[in-house]
């Protein structure tokens, strides 16, 4: 395990720096044979301080720990534990590898077993800005049908909720998940569970609709869109996708015309419209 710098070619100056102070233990993985053990107190002269197996010529005065200290009967137990853990580690790393690797011969054949193992707790995705970074700004807009306190109906203009998020993130050293992830990922969730005509694909589409609706209603309530005594009766969501301009030094030309995707109107349940979402 060279990653611990436990090898024998540790730089001398690093060792000198790390030379143990009196009464101080030494790390497991420092080479032990090069500089003999200091006059360490007995209680720290534990198993870890003994020379590595490669240097068995050095005296090993303390009683052994580890498997060597066990009688054969117990050694079987230790060997069994070692075998079980070794297999578990190999299986786990193998499964995670197959889960993150591109679809391949093995993962196609054993996809079900891999999913069974990975989900729900070991799910992961490390395609960070890969294979290509997102090159579009996708903004989520919302407008609402409001019934005012006097019973008059009106439709609001479009509110750009993503621009709100953007403003909250600007100059912010610690953006909140509510600003950076909530709406953005809710939209991804919606897009992922609907086709381009907003028809549901997959069992989670209803969840994504309700989630998105609750987010936009919350934002509208917070913004006071309904006015005093007004009630949000229906909401409509749309997205506005704009390409990020190509870099100034690039010859690429991208369209700067935004593309809109307009979702159907959704009616808002009464409880939700009255501040049910917090």
């Amino acid at each position: 395990m060279d990653a611990y710098d436990g090898g024998s070619d540790a730089p001398r100056e690093a060792e000198a720096e790390a030379a143990p102070e009196p009464g101080t233990g030494r790390p497991t993985d420092m080479p032990s044979a090069k500089d003999p053990l200091p006059g360490a107190p007995a209680e720290i002269a534990d198993a870890r301080l003994r020379p590595e197996p490669g240097h068995l010529a050095a005296p090993a005065p303390e009683p052994r720990t580890g498997v060597a200290a066990l009688s054969p009967r117990y050694q079987i137990g230790a060997a069994l534990a070692l075998a079980v853990v070794a297999i578990a580690v190999c299986v786990h790393i193998g499964m995670v590898f197959l889960h993150v690797a591109p679809s391949n011969t093995v993962s196609k054949t054993h996809g079900e077993a891999i999913d069974e193992y990975i989900y729900p707790e070991f799910e992961q995705n490390w395609k960070l800005f890969a294979p290509n970074p997102l090159q579009q700004n996708i903004a989520v807009h919302v407008r609402a049908d409001i019934r005012a306190a006097d019973g008059a109906e009106r439709t609001t203009g479009w509110y750009d909720l993503s621009a709100q998020d953007g403003r909250n993130i600007d100059g912010n050293l610690v953006p909140s998940h509510t600003q950076q992830n909530e709406l953005r990922r809710a939209w991804d969730f919606y897009v992922g569970s609907h086709d381009s005509d907003n028809r549901s694909v997959g069992p989670r589409s209803a969840l994504s609709e309700e989630y998105l609706r609750r987010i936009v209603v919350l934002r509208l309530e917070r913004g006071g869109a309904a006015g005093d005594g007004g009630v949000i009766e229906r909401v409509q969501v749309r997205s506005r996708t704009t390409n990020v301009e190509a870099p100034p030094w690039s010859a690429d030309k991208v369209s700067s015309t935004p593309v809109f995707r307009v979702l159907p109107w959704w009616s808002v349940p009464a409880a939700e419209a009255e501040g049910g979402v917090k």
Binding site: F129, P131, P133, A139, S162, I169, N172, L173, P175
Partner: peptide, 19 residues
């Protein structure tokens, strides 16, 4: 974009990742 050497430019111009 990682091949043509412009990838890093893009996240810096996404509204959600450009404080």
């Amino acid at each position: 974009r990682w091949q043509d050497g412009t990838a890093v430019y893009y996240p810096l111009h996404l509204d959600y990742f450009s404080p």
